[in-house]
Simulated scan of single mutants.
Amino acid sequence: MTTSPDLAAPPDSGGLPNLRPSSPRYGEKIIFGILAGSAVISVATTVAIVLSLIMPSLDFFRDVSIVEFLTGTEWSAGFQDAQYGVLALLSGTIQVVFYSLLVSIPVGLGVAIYLNEYAPDWVRRAVTPVLEILAGVPTVAIGLWALYALTPIVADLLPFLEWGTYSIGVAGLAVGLMSVPIVSSVSQDALRAVPDSLRQGAFALGSTKREVSIKIAVPAAFSGIVASIILAASRAVGETMIVLMAGGGRPQFTFDPTEPVLAMTSFIGQTATGDIAAGTTTYDTIFAVGLLLFTITLILNMLAIRMVRRFREVYE
Score class of each variant (00 low, 15 high):
Ser76Asn: 03
Pro129Glu: 08
Pro138Ile: 07
Glu117Ile: 06
Leu90Trp: 03
Ser91Cys: 12
Ile41His: 09
Thr93Glu: 01
Thr165Cys: 08
Val180Thr: 09
Gly110Asp: 01
Gly176Trp: 03
Gln83Glu: 02
Pro159Phe: 10
Trp75Lys: 00
Tyr148Pro: 15
Met55Glu: 15
Ala155Lys: 12
Arg62Val: 10
Ala171Tyr: 02
Val175Glu: 05
Val43Thr: 12
Ala141Ile: 15
Ser65Trp: 09
Ala119Gln: 09
Ser42Asn: 13
Gly164Cys: 05
Leu109Lys: 02
Ala155Thr: 10
Tyr84Pro: 01
Pro56Ile: 07
Gln188Asn: 05
Val186Lys: 06
Val137Ser: 03
Phe79Ala: 06
Val47Glu: 12
Leu158Cys: 06
Val111Asn: 02
Val67Pro: 00
Gly143Gln: 05
Leu70Glu: 02
Val183Lys: 10
Gly72Phe: 02
Gln80Asn: 13
Arg62Ser: 13
Ala48Asn: 09
Val43Arg: 11
Val170Gly: 02
Pro152Tyr: 15
Asp156Thr: 10
Ala149Asn: 15
Gly169Gln: 05
Met55Tyr: 15
Gly136Pro: 03
Ile41Phe: 12
Val97His: 03
Leu157Gln: 08
Leu101Arg: 04
Trp163Phe: 11
Ala88Asp: 00
Pro152Phe: 14
Arg124Trp: 03
Ile168Val: 13
Leu101Phe: 01
Glu132Gln: 04
Gly172Asn: 05
Tyr148Glu: 14
Gly164Val: 08
Ile49Met: 11
Gly136Glu: 05
Pro56Tyr: 05
Thr165Glu: 13
Val96Lys: 00
Leu177Glu: 08
Ile49Gln: 08
Pro138Leu: 04
Ser91Pro: 10
Val97Tyr: 03
Glu117Asp: 07
Leu147Phe: 15
Val50Ile: 14
Gly143Val: 04
Gly143Asp: 06
Val137Trp: 02
Ala135Thr: 03
Pro120Tyr: 14
Gln80Phe: 13
Phe60Glu: 02
Thr73Glu: 00
Thr93Ile: 00
Pro129Asp: 07
Ala155Asn: 14
Leu144Asn: 08
Glu117Ser: 09
Ile113Glu: 08
Arg125Glu: 12
Gly85Ser: 01
Gly169Ser: 07
Gly85Glu: 03
Thr45Gly: 10
Phe60Tyr: 10
Thr165Tyr: 11
Leu158Asn: 04
Val86Glu: 03
Ile41Tyr: 14
Trp122Arg: 15
Ser76Gln: 01
Ser52Trp: 04
Asp189Leu: 09
Ser100Arg: 07
Val154Asp: 08
Gly78Met: 01
Glu68Cys: 04
Gly164Arg: 11
Tyr166Pro: 05
Arg62Phe: 10
Gly176Ser: 07
Leu134Asp: 01
Pro106Thr: 05
Leu173Pro: 04
Leu177Tyr: 11
Pro56Asp: 05
Val96Met: 00
Val64Ala: 00
Ile66Tyr: 01
Gln95Met: 10
Thr165Ile: 12
Pro159Val: 05
Val140Ile: 13
Ser184Thr: 09
Ser91Met: 14
Thr93Phe: 00
Leu70Val: 06
Arg124Asn: 09
Ile105Met: 11
Tyr166Glu: 07
Leu131Ile: 07
Leu150Ala: 03
Leu101Gln: 09
Val186Pro: 08
Leu102Asn: 00
Gln95Val: 06
Ser57Asp: 01
